[in-house]
Nucleic acid binder design. Structure first.
Lengths: 229, 229
DNA sequence: AGAATAGTGTCTCTGAGACACTATGTT
DNA sequence: AACATAGTGTCTCAGAGACACTATTCT
């Protein structure tokens, strides 16, 4: 029966970490400090630590923590990429994850080896990172129209106007205010906090938050809240 | 200390192979011939063959070919399951796939170590196969309402009435004929073959086929038609 | 009070479901 | 011709977009 043809493949985890900056969907890339492709802009990723990771979501959460200092990032599994050629080190499997984060959770200055890039103007990336990014953006846009994914780009409290702006930035189209509010209400994913956003302008807006801590319905519960360290 | 391969986890591929029999969604399980869980009903699955598999989809296609003799099965990647506890042999990663097949493509008699089970009355399954099955059925039902997934349960040629029956079997609810035809037309996924199905009953029905060989839109192109070998 | 932004009421038009009808084959 | 199943026409109602209106706060 099993005559293992060789041994096991290399296994890694990667994250397509997206955020919104200047009304553009941007991706966080990181300069590789090791071979292969040392010095190239690439997705944050790394190996599993079999002695500490509970699953691949925890593994990528750990990697992101180590590379960006952030915890409690919204994560969901995207797709697994595999094959003999995608990594020059040999037959490999990469479990790719979608990560979403408000721009304000990142430091203003990211440093020299971390950068945010408009997803429509990407630098050359190694491996199949381009495919992973395309997959992630397509997931965001595809489900974005009627899911709670874009909410992850906002801080915990936000106004309806903020929310509408985010959806429009993600989908690249503007819409009617009244229709938007109706649609969001029917999705039943946010609730009023009771507070108001008074930012010195004119009439203050009501503040909302995501309803269930565990986000929406289908895939989302995966690597979501992470009560982790 | 356990067999832990220290650096890399065990990597396997599994398939949740679904079909439709007697208007029920059924899953193909297979009696394990090896440890662990020898003799238990489990998902068909196996190891990667690094010297012959081009990716995980090809790997699971090869496994299914070896276990059922079938080629050209509709496949799409489902999700990757991982963790230290899901397999007693150690930290493991399983890339799970959804496979759909017409009942008529399977032999009438499946033999003693292959069985079809109603997805609502599953036998005990080892590993996290129960989770994988739930995930697959939920994907089928979730996307089934407006995707071309259920078409994969039918042979290459089928009538509108056949098609409606399949959707209703999958979703578990009946609907209006006129509405159904309008919805399917708007999806633009099938086309008339020009032939008629004359099965000795009364008026013959027009025959249809899936439009693009590459199925629908979003995820489906993954492991789809497979001009394999 | 007036300006500016937040938030709502409502008209219309489209699209889905319900249901009755027509069409075309078999016996 | 009668019948059974395939396939279509159309009515109605609910929901989405467009747009004008009202509400609340700041200066």
């Amino acid at each position: 029966m099993e005559t293992s043809s060789e041994r096991y493949p290399i296994v890694t985890v990667d994250a397509v970490l997206l955020t919104l900056e200047e009304h553009q969907v941007k991706i966080l890339l990181h300069r590789r400090s090791n071979a292969p492709f040392e010095g190239a802009w690439a997705l944050p990723g790394g190996y599993l630590h079999l002695d500490e990771d509970a699953d691949t979501s925890e593994a990528i959460a750990r990697v992101l923590h180590d590379k960006t200092g952030l915890d409690d990032i919204y994560l969901e599994q995207l797709k697994t990429f595999s094959g003999p050629a995608r990594d020059p080190r040999g037959w490999s499997v990469s479990v790719s994850h979608l990560a979403l984060i408000p721009r304000s959770d990142l430091p203003d200055d990211l440093g020299a080896d971390v950068g945010l890039f408009d997803v429509r103007k990407l630098p050359k990336t190694p491996f199949d990172h381009g495919d992973q990014i395309r997959e992630a953006v397509s997931r965001l846009r595809g489900k974005g129209a009627y899911s709670s994914l874009p909410v992850q780009f906002l801080p915990a409290q936000f106004t309806m106007v903020d929310l509408q702006q985010v959806y429009e930035d993600v989908l690249g189209e503007t819409g009617d205010q009244s229709s938007f509010r109706r649609k969001i209400s029917s999705l039943d994913i946010i609730e009023e906090t009771g507070d108001l956003a008074r930012e010195g302008r004119r009439r203050p807006a009501a503040l909302y938050r995501l309803k269930a801590p565990g986000r929406t319905f289908d895939q989302s519960l995966k690597g979501a809240p992470r009560g982790k360290t």
